[in-house]
Simulated scan of single mutants.
Amino acid sequence: MKLMPIVGAVALTLSLAACEKTPTGQVVAVVNGEEISLQELNAELQGQQIPENVDRQLVMNQLLQRVIDRKLLAQQAAEQGLDRDPEYLSQQRRMNETLLVQMMGQRAARAIRIPPAAEVDKFIASNPQMFNQRTRYALQQLQFEAPANMQTLQPLEDDRTLDEVAATLDQLGIRYQRGQSVLDSATAPPELMQRILALPEGEPFIVPAQGKLIANVIVGRQVTPTPAEQARPAATQALQRQSLQQTIERQLATARQGAEIEYQSGYSAEAAKGKAAPAAGATNRAATPGS
């Protein structure tokens, strides 16, 4: 009977020792019981441009302090219950899904073959806008929020200049910002360039960008052929990107075929098509919705 408390004390001591975490091996630090692994620290290092003459270990130590600070603030946020907030849970789910898709894409990219020389040469010949006829177009722009009802922008169809677009937006009570940009024919989708260049000289066109609409007009151009030594590597990468995109599209098509998707009324795939943003060069005038 007298041994029972002693045994219990020993067991409790062993239990506490087992729960105590120490920064050894692959664990570089422990913050209030939460481990920071070397793998986690190396992930922080990815994307960092470290000059050759800089002490890598010093950079690692500095990054570790940043991770520790983030852990401490995150722990405080959790203590305040923010980790149970519906908005946090929604954003966390979105970030997790985005990361999984990115990692799946990276895995698929590693399996993409290097295209043979003949295929590369054919791609270069078939896409002159990316290589020997590469052109940079100077643009004047008007950027504005997309209205809830895209048909509101129908009057833009008759506008022939960017100033006329601005006047129409003023009449519609839509605020906009003026700006400038450059359109590179080497990076723009070929079908997009074809539709833009089919417009009359000086004709404005509208493209969607990150939830906004941008009215553009070409005000200058400069032909800058891709140097021969850069053409083949660029073509190889472009073909690999195409192959990767096709792989992802096939995976998505397969997933859709085997999925059970139920929509609330008004949120179906058909409804989404009716809300699509305007494409550039949808008509021979301004590329407006519904045209």
Results as ranks from 00 to 15, higher is better:
193 M>A: 01
113 R>T: 02
112 I>W: 08
227 P>E: 00
75 Q>R: 09
62 Q>R: 13
273 K>A: 09
179 G>C: 08
276 A>R: 15
92 Q>E: 14
192 L>W: 10
74 A>M: 12
283 T>E: 07
121 D>V: 02
211 G>K: 02
274 G>L: 15
73 L>W: 04
211 G>Y: 01
278 P>H: 05
220 G>K: 15
78 A>I: 06
144 F>C: 04
248 I>A: 15
214 I>D: 09
142 L>V: 12
160 R>H: 10
159 D>Q: 15
38 L>T: 09
90 S>N: 11
202 G>A: 12
29 A>V: 02
54 V>I: 13
242 Q>R: 07
287 A>F: 02
50 I>C: 11
146 A>T: 12
256 R>D: 06
28 V>P: 01
106 Q>L: 09
214 I>Q: 08
204 P>W: 05
6 I>D: 09
8 G>K: 11
277 A>I: 02
204 P>L: 04
114 I>V: 10
159 D>T: 14
284 N>F: 13
252 L>D: 14
196 I>S: 03
289 P>F: 09
235 A>V: 03
203 E>I: 03
222 Q>Y: 03
78 A>Y: 07
149 N>T: 10
82 L>E: 10
20 E>F: 12
264 Q>W: 04
102 Q>W: 03
269 A>K: 14
239 L>M: 10
237 Q>C: 00
276 A>N: 11
267 Y>N: 13
152 T>F: 01
53 N>F: 12
14 L>N: 00
192 L>Y: 13
241 R>L: 05
